[in-house]
Design a protein around this nucleic acid. Structure first.
Lengths: 250, 250
DNA sequence: GTCGGGGGAATTGTTCAACAATCGACCGTC
DNA sequence: GACGGTCGATTGTTGAACAATTCCCCCGAC
């Protein structure tokens, strides 16, 4: 569990003595962190769908940890806005509404388009290597029909763009938005057609950036965001009317 | 403890039956929430200065709650970025660095100035009543020499402006920035001269908005943010060199 | 049939004592 | 001065227990 951004410069972690090339060991994750990680993966894999209540005792038993540790994990996931809490009623996997989706996409427009503006004015640099790596990872995931991974990598592509702002807090905010948006993606019934089409668009965006055609990239991204918003909106609206999020494959 | 924004529409809270005018009762805060609130107040009052370690057992004893409850409160405050955590070392009150201050003010420029742009283009409405109320509250606090309150209300003034975007997530993000910035304000040695000057500027901004002079308001706010950033930057830099945040009054 | 009240079960919120694990300070040795 | 070991303080976790809250079901009154 990390606080991010790290506001106090951490004491330089002790390097291996006499072996200056060795990286510092990262601290082992606590049990609460590991429990949170398992729950997070279950959510993104669609095992715990939006709206699902997560009873503490059941989770504690399943994860073989203490109930207090589960509560700690819940707290971390609430902070990530994956879980929704109500006093005395416990936590549920967060449910994204249509208003949520609209808010997220409006903010994406602000953050992503202004990043392009900065780049085109020469006031920021785009990490084209990271952008290309995200496209490559998306292609690999698509080749193995891992459509949810395609969606996740797609969001990473966009985070690279926003990172051009050079603001740690904006990066973290965008990451938060993307985490929430992944909940919305869970409601999309056909991940392949949904995510697959955006992989192609990311390639086009990558190429437009590579050629310095920022105005074209801006226009393409604007269309992209408009056209991406619709199916997610429809999916979360349908999920609410139908009483649940469609289970993948069923 | 609230998750915000509330993504799932909460079940309509039961209204008093047969008495349609009565508001629904809010749930009582849990002990962890109350503990977090006390700690939060202590931080903002300068009792727990940035860098202060908060030992769980001491807090539990002082607050007369269980250590587990203190941990829950810590989690909430970490989520608000008031506390910094490191595994196996516990939590400290967060320390704002110069880079943090720069990041926050850069984001304020993006969020606050773009709000003015929206308003001047007629694409958003400014809540002038809330803006005026914030100025009035600032004046009252200044009349009683409550300078930290003046600073806090000042931040509320700016949150009203950002709220013109109409985005719940942006509001929350800005609130987060403002919370962090209050940590920076703790490092300012002379709260009166610092906060007092911005009260006057808020009045001027309120007037410019009231007269629809948005370009003037934008220019004034740009200057304001530049001139506000300097002393906070200097204060947190001095605090780090001096080994601590000056305690108010001595 | 509707409404209100009561009871019980399930779950969450908190407490407590204990133990495991980690870190930092201190001391002794080389 | 560097290194290793020990100890104390603190954090991370466990589990049992109890307090508090909510929800659901049933029953009686109208």
């Amino acid at each position: 569990m990390n606080n991010s951004p790290d506001s106090a410069p951490a004491p330089a972690r002790r390097r291996g003595r006499g072996l200056p090339g060795l990286p510092a060991l990262q601290p082992l994750p606590t049990a609460a962190e590991r429990a949170a990680s398992v729950i997070r993966d279950y959510i993104f894999e669609g095992e715990f769908l939006p709206g699902t209540p997560l009873p503490e005792a059941s989770l504690a038993q399943a994860l073989q940890v203490s109930r207090n540790t589960v509560r700690e994990a819940f707290r971390a996931l609430m902070s990530e806005h994956l879980l929704a809490y109500e006093a005395h009623k416990g936590v549920t996997v967060r449910w994204l509404t249509a208003a949520d989706v609209r808010d997220i996409y409006a903010l994406r427009r602000v953050l992503e388009l202004s990043a392009i503006d900065l780049i085109s004015e020469g006031r920021a640099a785009l990490d084209t290597a990271a952008l290309g790596a995200a496209v490559t990872a998306g292609e690999a995931a698509a080749a193995e029909s891992r459509w949810r991974d395609v969606g996740t990598v797609n969001l990473r592509f966009h985070a690279v763009l926003v990172a051009s702002h050079g603001s740690a807090r904006m990066d973290e905010f965008f990451l938060r938005l993307m985490t929430e948006l992944r909940l919305g993606f869970l409601a999309v019934a056909d991940p392949e057609s949904f995510h697959g089409s955006y992989l192609t668009r990311n390639m086009q965006l990558r190429d437009l950036f590579g050629e310095g055609r920022y105005a074209d990239a801006r226009a393409a991204l604007t269309r992209y965001l408009e056209e991406a918003e619709g199916p997610v909106l429809a999916a979360v609206s349908a999920a609410r009317e139908g009483g649940g999020v469609p289970r993948p494959g069923g």
